[in-house]
Amino acid sequence: MVRFENVGMRYGAGPEVLRDVTFVLESGSFTFLTGLSGAGKTTLLKLISVAEPPSRGLITLFGHDLATAKRSTLPGLRRRIGVVFQDFRLLDHLSAFDNVALPLRIAGRKESEYARDVEELLVWVGLGDRMNAIPPTLSGGEQQRVAIARAVVAKPDLLVADEPTGNVDPEIGARLIRLFAELNRLGTTVLIATHDRALVESTRAREMRLVDGRLVELRMSRP
């Protein structure tokens, strides 16, 4: 599903924020990416989600070598990935419904086909009564849930989430993790970046830890 080989990343002429990162995410796996602030978690997620090209090394995604993949194939690869951004990145002028529906519109689906799915998902994340609200009127936790619903609505092959439970109370956080687990059970590969130790310890999932831009495999998934 995802293969990194000796990947390095630096922004401009700055220092390398990722160094010789090598790992494989098997299809259908559930993995936590942990590390202190500034360890490079967000950068690694950007590389996986094809938001940035690496400075060096080889990234293989869904069988495509990103260094040699045609530019025209990249949008299709990106559509197979759901991303929960740390800063949510919702469109302020669109309702919660339309923000969640955005990946489906991009995929060319008609509203009549997806409206029910979007509404059910919003109900599931506890926003059934906030569908028509625009993000500026939503709390941080509500915005985060909209962002998560948007990332999962198209049932992506790969879900990457950057601190997805950072702004929600424990009960909602547990509910969202159950949503990720359910997606994972249905076949989606999940990678969650977090510094929430309790969250990591609450599951048997694999943990990869970043330390000063280098990847340390801490724990393989437990049976």
Binding site: S49, A51, P75, G76, L77, R78, R79, R80, I81, V83, R89, L91, L102, P103, I106, A107
Partner: peptide, 16 residues
Amino acid sequence: NDMVSLLHQMGAQAGF
């Protein structure tokens, strides 16, 4: 710019 980069990140084709 935020909207464009978001759409791009979500896999929108340039034509979209």
